[in-house]
Amino acid sequence: MRVGIIGHEGLSEISEMLIRGELWRLVTAYGAYELVGVGCLAPGPESWFARAVLDHGGRIEAIVPASAAPAEPAWQRLLGRAAAVHRLAPVGFGGLGDDTGRALVGMVDELIAVWDGRPDGEAARVIEAARRAGLFVQVVWPDGCESP
């Protein structure tokens, strides 16, 4: 099972605690050895999910946008543990765009979205694309979470 992850960054400590618990529960439910977590490994929900997948014995794959700048050591360590790293072409290269959301939707069977439900922003666009593609989207936003 290939499961993608997107989510808000810059969440409060209480939101982090609630979301980490829910992500842990979801990873446990998927069954570790067949699970491949796919995402950009960004700080916050994406890296929390990746660590939960690895802690349960699953594998992770990273999507690295062409515009990605050198990142913090924690991101580099997760990237080093990825079974595959998918580097996207820069905008304008052979007509391909730097569209991580579209790449993610094309690589997974399901999507977890740590999302507050606001209709604007990148998360909403990726969720809509995933639903149009027929993917199951699991929205994670436990009671008590605070929008960034």
Rank of each mutant, 00 (worst) to 15 (best):
M1D: 11
M1C: 08
R2H: 12
V3A: 14
V3L: 13
I6D: 08
I6M: 02
E9N: 08
G10E: 12
L11C: 10
S12F: 01
S15A: 14
E16K: 13
M17N: 06
L18C: 02
R20E: 15
R20N: 10
G21V: 00
L23R: 02
W24Q: 15
W24A: 15
L26Y: 11
T28F: 01
T28P: 02
G31W: 01
G31Y: 01
G31L: 06
A32Y: 00
A32W: 09
A32D: 00
V36Y: 02
G37N: 04
V38G: 04
V38L: 04
G39L: 03
G39A: 09
C40A: 10
P43M: 11
P45S: 11
E46Q: 15
E46F: 04
E46H: 06
F49A: 05
F49Q: 03
R51N: 08
R51M: 10
A52Y: 01
A52K: 01
A52E: 15
V53P: 01
D55W: 06
H56Y: 07
G57C: 05
G58F: 03
G58A: 08
G58C: 08
G58L: 07
G58P: 06
R59S: 13
I60P: 02
I60V: 14
I60Q: 07
V64E: 14
P65K: 12
A66N: 04
S67A: 15
S67Q: 13
S67I: 10
A68L: 15
P70Y: 06
P70S: 09
A71N: 06
E72Q: 12
P73M: 04
A74W: 04
A74Y: 02
W75R: 13
Q76T: 07
R77D: 14
L79C: 07
L79V: 00
G80W: 02
G80E: 03
A82C: 08
A82M: 02
V85P: 01
H86A: 01
H86Y: 01
H86D: 05
L88D: 03
A89Q: 12
P90Q: 03
P90K: 10
G92E: 06
G92L: 09
G92F: 03
G94S: 00
G94D: 03
G95C: 06
G97T: 09
G97W: 03
G97N: 06
D98Y: 02
T100R: 13
T100W: 15
G101I: 00
G101T: 03
R102Y: 05
V105S: 06
V105T: 07
G106A: 13
M107R: 15
M107D: 05
D109T: 01
D109A: 08
E110L: 05
E110M: 07
L111F: 09
D116P: 04
D116I: 00
P119T: 14
P119L: 14
D120L: 14
G121V: 13
E122M: 13
E122T: 14
E122A: 15
E122Q: 13
A123Q: 15
A124M: 11
A124L: 06
V126N: 08
I127W: 00
E128Q: 13
E128P: 01
E128G: 09
A130L: 09
L135V: 04
L135M: 09
L135K: 12
F136N: 14
V137R: 10
V137W: 11
Q138Y: 12
V139R: 15
V140Q: 10
W141N: 13
W141A: 10
P142L: 10
P142F: 06
P142K: 11
D143L: 14
G144H: 08
C145E: 03
E146G: 00
